[in-house]
Design a protein around this nucleic acid. Structure first.
Lengths: 177, 177
DNA sequence: GACACCATGTAAAAGGTTACATGATTCG
DNA sequence: CGAATCATGTAACCTTTTACATGGTGTC
């Protein structure tokens, strides 16, 4: 299960509370890599603590608990991250699924959908490029993290943008690509 | 739930049995978009039939049932596909998660991981480009489908490849991106 | 004092995976 | 006749989502 490793990884970069981790999952990590809500995060932190991979470093106001990774947790994370790319790893992307099912539509609808995708990803790439450019070097505890994610996102949007333009160019009148 | 729409979409392109759909999910669709095994596909086909979105067109040898989409199913599929891109759509990608957690590693491990990713995606892009180039135009019932998926995959691998090279170039000695 | 936000949790239901189970057909 | 492949299904388990539930703190 990858949620445990996602939490381990985020905590390895900087200790945090369940609440802060939840907000993290609403950012880039949730948009490109893995989604999770607080109702799965809190119990999972409890399980990780029970397994000795994380521990509570201190309790703050309003019952807030700050978690940090233990040496054992760091070892577990490292061995998971350094695994060779495995071809059966979990993949689930609703947007990409929509693109793949394009062939099920009539030609006119195909063009409509591809045009929308091209516009949307083109705009998203431009916006993200602007955001990344204005980000101050240095910054918070996860600054490097955001930079890496930003550059990934830009390339991701550009790739889909180029694909949509290619597809628009290559679907014939009868809709066969 | 997207599995139902994935099945609807595949059947809309060409009628098929649960067994054939299962094999479909082991190809590009499972690699880039959505995974499913036969144990989730068979019950789901049953539910879709109960809702009147698909129906069994004929039963062949060994109890094989060929499903096709009904008009109602086609309408449901179309309205789902033409929905505007929604930012909270399901995203779950173990490989991308690994990349995002790069910052949790020591600089030497980061470089090792990025080098591996760059090599792997570079090779995958080249191989896929070769496969797409040799595919005969025309072909089977889902030929357009495979072409679309192939072009998508190529751009996907290239994007990650470029990202990994960028990251290798930009992580300083202390591992800050 | 109301509203926004901080901060945590549980429980039921839905969705998905793994393991188990069965039998037909085809090819060598 | 044995092995691979075709073809379907159920059940137990695990994971995830949705809904419910509670209370503290800061600010206007």
């Amino acid at each position: 299960m990858s949620l445990s490793h996602a939490l381990l990884g985020l905590l390895a970069v900087a200790p945090a509370s369940g609440y802060e981790l939840t907000k993290e999952f609403e950012q880039e990590i949730g948009r490109y890599a893995w989604q999770a809500g607080h109702t799965s995060i809190y119990p999972e932190l409890g399980k990780l603590a029970a397994r000795g991979l994380v521990h509570v470093t201190h309790e703050g106001a309003r019952g807030a608990k700050t978690y940090d990774v233990t040496d054992e947790g760091r070892e577990e994370l490292r061995s998971w991250l350094l695994q060779p790319p495995n071809p059966t790893a979990t993949v689930r992307n609703e947007q990409v699924l929509r693109m793949f099912l394009l062939s099920a539509l009539e030609p006119a609808d195909q063009r409509l959908m591809l045009t929308r995708i091209a516009e949307h990803t083109g705009r998203a790439a431009t916006e993200l490029r602007a955001v990344v450019a204005t980000e101050t070097p240095g910054g918070g505890p996860r600054a490097g993290f955001g930079r890496l994610a930003g550059e990934f996102g830009i390339r991701q949007y550009e790739a889909v943008h180029e694909w949509a333009l290619w597809a628009l160019d290559h679907i014939a009148e009868d809709g066969q690509a």
